[in-house]
Simulated scan of single mutants.
Amino acid sequence: MKDKKIFELEYVLKTSPKVLDNVLFTQSGLADWFCDDVNIKDDIYSFEWDGYIEQARLLSLKKGQAIKWQWIEDEEEGIDTYFGFRYHIDPLTNAVILTISGSAAEEDIKEAKALWEQHVSDLRRLIGA
Rank of each mutant, 00 (worst) to 15 (best):
residue 121 S to F: 01
residue 44 I to H: 09
residue 40 I to R: 12
residue 94 N to W: 05
residue 57 R to I: 01
residue 10 E to M: 10
residue 121 S to P: 02
residue 77 E to Q: 15
residue 36 D to P: 00
residue 129 A to L: 05
residue 70 Q to D: 01
residue 40 I to C: 06
residue 13 L to F: 03
residue 76 E to M: 11
residue 56 A to G: 11
residue 115 L to T: 11
residue 35 C to Y: 01
residue 49 W to Y: 04
residue 109 I to D: 13
residue 49 W to A: 08
residue 73 E to F: 03
residue 77 E to G: 01
residue 27 Q to M: 04
residue 97 I to L: 12
residue 5 K to I: 05
residue 12 V to I: 10
residue 18 K to L: 10
residue 55 Q to M: 06
residue 123 L to S: 12
residue 14 K to N: 13
residue 113 K to H: 07
residue 50 D to Y: 05
residue 104 A to F: 04
residue 127 I to G: 08
residue 73 E to A: 12
residue 94 N to S: 14
residue 121 S to E: 12
residue 33 W to Y: 03
residue 37 D to Q: 13
residue 57 R to T: 06
residue 38 V to D: 08
residue 65 Q to R: 15
residue 126 L to K: 14
residue 81 T to P: 09
residue 1 M to K: 06
residue 67 I to E: 05
residue 14 K to W: 00
residue 9 L to V: 02
residue 14 K to G: 07
residue 110 K to Y: 04
residue 66 A to D: 07
residue 120 V to W: 07
residue 118 Q to G: 08
residue 101 S to Q: 14
residue 2 K to I: 05
residue 107 E to C: 02
residue 76 E to S: 05
residue 35 C to W: 00
residue 93 T to W: 04
residue 98 L to I: 05
residue 8 E to F: 03
residue 62 K to L: 06
residue 125 R to V: 03
residue 124 R to N: 11
residue 126 L to M: 07
residue 121 S to W: 00
residue 101 S to C: 02
residue 93 T to N: 12
residue 11 Y to G: 03
residue 105 A to G: 12
residue 121 S to T: 10
residue 10 E to D: 00
residue 76 E to R: 15
residue 38 V to G: 10
residue 13 L to E: 11
residue 28 S to G: 01
residue 41 K to V: 01
residue 91 P to Y: 06
residue 53 I to A: 04
residue 120 V to K: 14
residue 67 I to Q: 11
residue 5 K to Q: 14
residue 11 Y to E: 11
residue 59 L to R: 14
residue 116 W to A: 08
residue 89 I to Q: 14
residue 5 K to N: 13
residue 51 G to H: 02
residue 58 L to P: 02
residue 48 E to S: 12
residue 93 T to G: 11
residue 122 D to L: 08
residue 128 G to L: 07
residue 121 S to Y: 05
residue 80 D to K: 15
residue 120 V to F: 06
residue 85 F to S: 07
residue 126 L to A: 08
residue 61 L to P: 00
residue 100 I to F: 09
residue 36 D to A: 09
residue 26 T to I: 03
residue 54 E to W: 04
residue 48 E to C: 10
residue 82 Y to H: 14
residue 44 I to L: 11
residue 31 A to C: 04
residue 109 I to Q: 15
residue 15 T to L: 08
residue 113 K to Y: 01
residue 69 W to K: 02
residue 87 Y to P: 00
residue 65 Q to S: 15
residue 49 W to E: 09
residue 96 V to M: 12
residue 79 I to N: 14
residue 82 Y to G: 04
residue 3 D to R: 12
residue 57 R to Y: 01
residue 117 E to C: 02
residue 55 Q to W: 00
residue 47 F to Y: 05
residue 104 A to K: 13
residue 123 L to I: 05
residue 38 V to N: 09
